[in-house]
Design a protein around this nucleic acid. Structure first.
Length: 243
DNA sequence: CCGGTTGTTCAGCG
DNA sequence: GCGCTGAACAACCG
């Protein structure tokens, strides 16, 4: 689950804000669900792929990883990692990682590193990238310390949109291409968000899982790129290799 | 029905 | 102590 999906979740639970937890249960082991009972939800926040339930003196961090899912005021067959019953509804979280954060969130998260946050700072991202010229664009986009919220789908679509090959090292990018990469990481994330809300995300993929390039109609090749070895779909003709 | 994956952490190694 | 690799986990789709 990539960053934009968490913004959608945040909207779906906003009616639970300022509500108290009436019941809490689940198979989670890192926290004791019962400790949440009686606590009032102060806010919901996201940082990249982290979904944060903020209580008065602590927060709960949810990470959905690859297979996590949720239901709001609905359930599915599987037993939830965490189920919260509020005064006005319920939230069911499945197959996710759940941790308690006792520190002040301001000391844990740098909001300017989240591509979808109002405080996103592209110049700061650029400075971080400049320090690691040998890293591939594939790996740099997936680096949560630089582009929190970007996942493998966003990576693929951003690289096609700016016509850069996934195996290009960031140091060899012309300055304008680097600007485009940073800009499109945020820009495509918002397109992802808008399309996902209307169930048209996959319909709008240009390169991800595609077999034919939408531009030149040539073949799309599948590679496992960078140190992360994540899937990359690439048009070898349109996504020029700068090196 | 099996293979693959919108992701991350950690053990084990040299 | 480091950087690197691969395993582990998980659930659903095609």
């Amino acid at each position: 689950m990539e960053g934009p999906s968490l913004l959608i979740l945040k909207e779906q639970v906003k009616t639970f804000k300022r509500r108290k937890v009436c019941k809490a249960s689940g198979t989670v082991t890192k926290i004791e669900p019962k400790m949440l009972v009686g606590e009032r939800i102060v806010d919901f926040k996201t940082w990249g792929k982290h979904f944060l339930i903020v209580f008065k003196s602590f927060s709960i961090r949810i990470h959905f990883l690859m297979f996590g899912s949720y239901r709001i005021n609905e359930r599915k067959a599987a037993s939830p990692k965490l189920q919260l019953k509020l005064e006005n509804g319920e939230m069911n979280l499945y197959a996710c990682s759940i941790e308690r954060i006792d520190e002040d969130l301001a000391n844990v998260y740098d909001w300017s590193g989240d591509v979808m946050n109002d405080l996103w700072d592209p110049a700061k991202a650029r400075r971080k990238i400049r320090k690691r010229p040998d890293v591939t664009v594939s790996d740099i986009l997936l680096d949560q310390n630089i582009f929190a919220g970007v996942g493998n789908i966003i990576k693929n679509e951003v690289l096609f949109r700016i016509r850069v090959h996934p195996e290009t090292s960031v140091g060899s990018l012309p300055p304008r291409k680097l600007t485009a990469l940073i800009g499109e990481a945020r820009n495509y994330s918002f397109d992802f968000y808008r399309w996902k809300k209307v169930f048209e995300l996959s319909k709008n993929w240009l390169i991800y899982t595609k077999r034919k390039c939408p531009e030149c109609k040539g073949p799309v090749t599948k590679r496992y790129t960078g140190l992360t070895r994540r899937r990359s779909f690439v048009c070898e003709r349109c996504q020029m290799f700068y090196d």
